[in-house]
């Protein structure tokens, strides 16, 4: 039996437009996604902002009722058996909110332990253990309002693990963390995997998914557009090379012109302080460099390199450059 089974899950939202002449508008956020996650698997759900990742997690954690399809957690239906699902799952959403800032870490955990009917004798041992696990023992008696974003996020992890759930949903847990905080949190996730927890992780950091997940699904505009292991997804872009050109002050019209070249599949620009990094996905590899440089004629250039595609490049191809 799969730990998580999702069949044609859908969710629409109704919004209204206008003040006096109000019109209803139906916005589909998740358009029938299906996947299964085996027990003990760490599964990644990748997608750009607004792709439907958080909406999917909210449905699977019983916080949002689907408008279509079904999903089961450990064989329990997320709508009909919601009360039985809740004690068996833990979840965190990215961001700083969701903790009582006026309470210290221990009291936050005490309160949430009681919400999960944790036996007082158990919580007395479990709370110090979890605080140690997430590295907050030394600051456990301080109010959460004085914590850094990373510390709050780690406290969220401890909160989600209080009742030792079999299934964990981590929705963009490293969002907004500094590199050190993010690395520590990823190590915590790896440790959870060692404990054979079933984990659904949503992220838009490709290297994170590549480093942690056994399988990933790419979701775009509410639909799953690919699902496989990170290495197989990377294989799907083996025909591509990525040319990276450092350029100073590239105008948008030049980028648009490069996009129209027949050998170019995708172009993106990343800002790097005073320069921009032009990333060109092409099937021609190094052969494309002279033509690209001629298009950049007149601009000051830095390093020019080619590299093998990464999971991020596979992702860019799948979501159409978004």
């Amino acid at each position: 039996m799969s730990a998580i089974e999702v069949i044609n899950l859908q969710r629409e939202f109704q919004t209204t437009i206008g003040v006096f002449n109000r019109k209803k508008k139906i916005v589909p956020a998740v358009k029938g996604i299906s996947f299964e996650i085996a027990g003990g698997e760490l599964f990644g759900l990748l997608g750009p902002n607004g792709a439907g990742k958080t909406t999917s997690v909210k449905m699977l954690t019983t916080l949002l009722i689907p408008t279509g399809g079904t999903a089961k957690i450990l064989g329990l239906d997320i709508v009909n058996d919601a009360e039985a699902v809740r004690p068996r799952i833990g979840f965190i959403f990215g961001g700083e909110r969701g903790l009582y800032w006026r309470l210290n870490a221990t009291d936050n955990l005490r309160y949430f332990a009681s919400l999960y009917y944790l036996d007082p004798a158990v919580s007395k041992k479990r709370i110090p253990y979890l605080l140690e696990m997430v590295g907050l023992t030394d600051r456990a008696d301080e109010k959460v309002e004085g914590y850094s974003r990373g510390m709050r996020q780690r406290l969220h992890i401890a909160r989600a693990l209080l009742h030792d759930p079999e299934v964990l949903f981590l929705d963009e847990p490293t969002m907004g963390l500094d590199p050190v905080g993010a690395r520590e949190l990823r190590q915590t996730v790896r440790n959870l995997q060692d404990e054979k927890k079933t984990i659904l992780l949503t992220t838009h950091y490709m290297f994170e998914a590549d480093a942690l997940c056994q399988r990933v699904a790419v979701i775009n505009k509410g639909e799953i557009v690919a699902m496989d292991t990170p290495s197989k997804l990377k294989d799907s872009v083996n025909d591509l090379s990525v040319v990276e050109i450092e350029v100073f002050g590239i105008p948008p019209e030049t980028v648009e012109k490069i996009k129209t070249l027949s050998m170019v599949e995708n172009v993106s620009v990343e800002d790097r302080d005073q320069l921009q990094l032009l990333l060109v996905h092409t099937s021609k590899g190094a052969e494309a460099i002279p033509l690209l440089i001629s298009e950049l004629n007149g601009l000051k250039l830095g390093k020019v390199t080619t590299r093998e595609p990464t999971l991020e490049d596979a992702y860019v191809r799948l979501v159409g450059g978004e």
Binding site: K58, T61, T62, L63, E83, R86, P87, F91, F93, G98, F112, S114, L115, Y116, Y117, R159
Partner: peptide
Amino acid sequence: PYLFGAPA
């Protein structure tokens, strides 16, 4: 969300 996601 954490309150309504708990079984309490």
